[in-house]
């Protein structure tokens, strides 16, 4: 039988790289990503799982990394904002965020990009309504979402 323990050796793939580390059971995935792995592109904007700034993709699906323990991610494949354009060659979505002025302070942007890129992978030509639905879990306090929605729709070829 599995024995409960204060920490666990976990193994996961993050942005294509294999990581193995012993982590305390209580450590949140977001702090593992930021503090232990130094991938500070993933942000923390609240303490109740509402804001989505910490959104990463877990096995391809967007999740809030502040509502997961790092040990729960054992065996998974994680993608963060740093993995979108590893060589600095921006994706169409990142370029659209720039062209449409879809970010101001940029703090929510990594989470937005991870939610939006997951949407586009499932649904390459989303409507405005579908984009708003997909981004409902990501709070932005700067843009009123207008240009964010416009940018994602534009990537899919919509008006």
């Amino acid at each position: 039988m599995a024995t409960p323990a204060r920490s666990r050796a976990i193994s996961l793939v993050i942005n294509g790289e294999q990581v193995e580390m012993e982590v305390p059971a209580r450590r949140l995935l977001v702090h593992f990503i930021r503090d232990d792995l130094g991938l500070t592109g993933t942000h923390v904007g609240c303490d109740t799982g509402n804001c989505g700034a910490c959104t990463v993709q877990l096995d391809g699906e967007p999740v809030k990394s502040c509502m997961l323990l790092a040990v729960q991610a054992d065996g998974s494949r994680i993608a963060t904002v740093e993995g979108l354009a590893p060589d600095g060659d921006l994706t169409a979505l990142q370029r659209a965020f720039n062209e449409h002025h879809a970010l101001q302070c940029g703090y929510c942007t990594p989470g937005m990009l991870m939610s939006a890129s997951a949407l586009l992978a499932r649904n390459p030509h989303p409507t405005e309504e579908e984009v708003r639905y997909a981004l409902q879990g990501n709070i932005c306090r700067c843009t009123g979402y207008v240009n964010i929605v416009e940018a994602v729709v534009a990537v899919g070829g919509g008006a």
């Binding site: 592109g41 904002v81 740093e82 979108l84 062209e99 970010l103 940029g106 990594p110």
Partner: peptide, 20 residues
């Protein structure tokens, strides 16, 4: 309406916020 110069780092998670 020149696209912002700040964006390139921010869309890659390469902004530096104090907690980073």
């Amino acid at each position: 309406s020149i696209p912002r110069r700040e964006d390139r780092r921010l869309v890659q998670g390469q902004g530096t916020f104090f907690d980073d």
